[in-house]
Amino acid sequence: MTHLANRRSSLVAYSRHEPGTQPESLYEPYRSTLRRAPSKPLIFLPHTLSEVTGPVYGHGNIAETDNDLTAQHQGEPLGERIIVTGKVLDSNGRPVPQTLIEVWQANSAGRYAHLKDQHPAPLDRNFTGAGRTLTDEHGAYRFITIKPGAYPWLNHDNAWRPAHIHFSVFGRAFISRLVTQMYFPGDPLLAFDPVYQSVPDEKARQRMISKFDLETTQPHWALGFKFDIVLRGPDATLFESI
């Protein structure tokens, strides 16, 4: 028992990323990284309670229409209605329950409800494009929304972002925090997108592409897409030795 208690108090290490599975801070084809990526090496930080704890959320933070982006206004937004579902797991394959997921996206024409978005595509008064939800006890989540449009940006000549939904997920620890983007299968723009291509490992990159899912698809109503998210978890080798 004492042994276990000792293990428990030293059980503070989270697994580290394998090389190539995450983008480096500097990726020249994505121009904005040039003046923003740190130039000096990062300092290795052993994990303490400061790193392996993080904010805890409850249902009080979520309103009823927060996970239905098509129901936040008087009328229905224009575009292709979709259902996005998936699970949040940690790197040991364990579900991450009760964790906050926030999403934001462009409308079906590729325009954000943001003052600085200059894309000459129409706004949709029935669509803001922001949602939030908590995962259930199995780590599962569900959003109803419309498929976002591709949009142009200024990174290089004739640059277009593939259709994507921005995801922000907390997980159990401040260092399991993840902000990513969900893409759609078969999008021809992925091959030309430096944000997507910034992840060196091809298999890792493909984990950001959702899958069309006939089971989630509802007849005469909406297409279903599956997007599972994996967060860093406690180092499994420590668990194994208990």
């Binding site: 599975t21 983008p23 040991n92 999403v103 954000y112 939030r132």
Partner: peptide, 25 residues
Amino acid sequence: MRMVPTPSQTVGPFFAFGLTQGKAC
């Protein structure tokens, strides 16, 4: 079972209405 974490992507320029306005701030 060891799973590879989902890659990170930039928060982009247009996150405010999702992450830092209203009750999210």
